[in-house]
């Protein structure tokens, strides 16, 4: 009797990791957009640390990603991030200088790191988004393969 190879087991840990990474990236950008919107209301901006919305957004995004693991690469997640970046650019008048300064300042304020230079903050944000997206995309592709990790998941 021919032996049937045992089916590959799903890897919930990998799915959760992919979800977490995607959520962290999407949440960071969503938090940044909300902080930019809040900052347009000067009364609020002068009384509240609107930058807190940036790490808070990332945290909530990450938690949501953990709660709803990512079964495969989802192109809409990249499209959503692109839309958030475009909206932020529009709010900042498509001013390249403002785009390099304001989100980094908001993140710095939100994380209570006033000594961090903008170059350092921008490097951190760029690494976060590039590495985070690259990792969940790679994981997502592996999870997508027909004979790959998820073939037995309904």
């Amino acid at each position: 009797m021919p032996t049937v190879p045992p089916p590959e087991q799903p890897r919930p840990a990998l799915q959760r990791l992919a979800g977490l990474l995607a959520g962290l990236c999407l949440g960071l950008l969503a938090g940044c957009l909300l902080a930019l919107l809040a900052g347009r209301w000067v009364w609020l901006g002068m009384r509240v640390n609107t930058g807190l919305l940036v790490p808070l957004g990332a945290l909530l995004g990450g938690l949501a990603g953990l709660k709803k693991p990512l079964g495969a690469a989802r192109p809409w997640l990249l499209a959503a991030q692109a839309a958030l970046v475009a909206a932020a650019a529009w709010l900042l008048g498509f001013d390249r200088q403002a785009l390099l300064v304001v989100p980094a300042c908001l993140f710095r304020e939100g994380c209570h790191l006033p000594g961090l230079s903008l170059t350092t903050t921008n490097a951190l944000l760029a690494s976060w988004l590039l590495a985070g997206n690259a990792l969940w995309l790679v994981l997502g592709r592996r999870l997508d393969q027909p004979h790959g990790l998820l073939r037995n998941i309904p």
């Binding site: 347009r40 300042c105 903008l118």
Partner: peptide, 12 residues
């Protein structure tokens, strides 16, 4: 210099 307020409004 706080770079944020070169692009966002403030009252200070």
């Amino acid at each position: 210099v706080n770079g944020k307020y070169l692009h966002q409004p403030t009252r200070h």
